[in-house]
């Protein structure tokens, strides 16, 4: 037992380094992906058919393609088309697209949950369509969608482990290379698992709390 703890102590700094990369990947993918998801959610109910279809197509590609395939496509596929990105940038690009696809559906649900009467009232007051979205629909829709968005953020954090396959040095990749050097895969993977849990469990609790807080005014 002390042997295991000593080893874990030795491995921890490298694993924490990997964890930081995982968290950075998650943050970057969410920061790019969620705004893109919101734009797609708004465009997918556009009155112009071409715009609506283009948005729906992007959403379906983002959602329908497995994250692993998306990662391989960006990192190994795009260089053949003349676009070479670093592993980290490829990972952010791929996970952002996945995020955008999923969150646009989550956000669209939130936007649609805003009572139609309020949109009508804003129209009757003479507010433009754009102002109605900006001040009435989007703030409430995002609030409604927030708990689901936070739940999705936890999933995308877990999905960062897939970037190990395109040689991003994140948590799983660090654990794997320690395992390869020591042959103690089980021990190091348990520690890696605990580190994932150290992020996902508090994040889950935070999601629940946010859900309760947000239901106050609505």
């Amino acid at each position: 037992m002390t042997g295991l703890l000593t080893s874990w102590g030795e491995w921890l700094p490298r694993l924490l380094e990997g964890l930081v990369t995982s968290v950075e990947l998650t943050a970057a993918s969410l920061l790019l992906g969620i705004p893109l998801g919101l734009v797609l959610a708004l465009l997918s109910s556009s009155r112009t058919r071409a715009v609506r279809w283009a948005a729906i197509a992007l959403v379906e590609i983002g959602r329908g393609t497995p994250a692993l395939v998306m990662l391989q496509f960006v990192y190994y596929g795009l260089p053949s088309a003349g676009l070479s990105l670093t592993a980290f940038v490829s990972a952010v690009a791929a996970l952002s697209l996945t995020t955008a696809g999923y969150t646009s559906e989550i956000l669209r649900g939130g936007l649609q949950a805003v009572p139609a009467g309020e949109t009508e009232a804003a129209g009757a007051l003479g507010m433009s369509h754009r102002d109605t979205l900006r001040f009435v629909v989007v703030p409430q829709g995002v609030r409604i969608a927030l708990p689901s968005l936070m739940g999705f953020a936890i999933l995308i954090f877990q999905a960062t482990s897939l970037t190990f396959t395109i040689s991003v040095v994140e948590l799983l990749s660090q654990a794997y290379s320690i395992g390869a050097a020591t042959f103690r895969y089980l021990d190091v993977l348990v520690l890696a698992g605990l580190l994932y849990l150290a992020v996902t469990i508090p994040a889950g609790l935070l999601t629940n709390r946010t859900e309760r807080r947000l239901s106050r005014h609505l």
């Binding site: 009572p115 009467g117 309020e118 009232a121 007051l125 609505l218």
Partner: peptide
């Protein structure tokens, strides 16, 4: 702009 309207269900902005 020249017509105001009041609805049965108030339709205030709750946020």
């Amino acid at each position: 702009r020249s017509v105001g309207m009041v609805f049965q269900s108030f339709n205030l902005f709750p946020h």
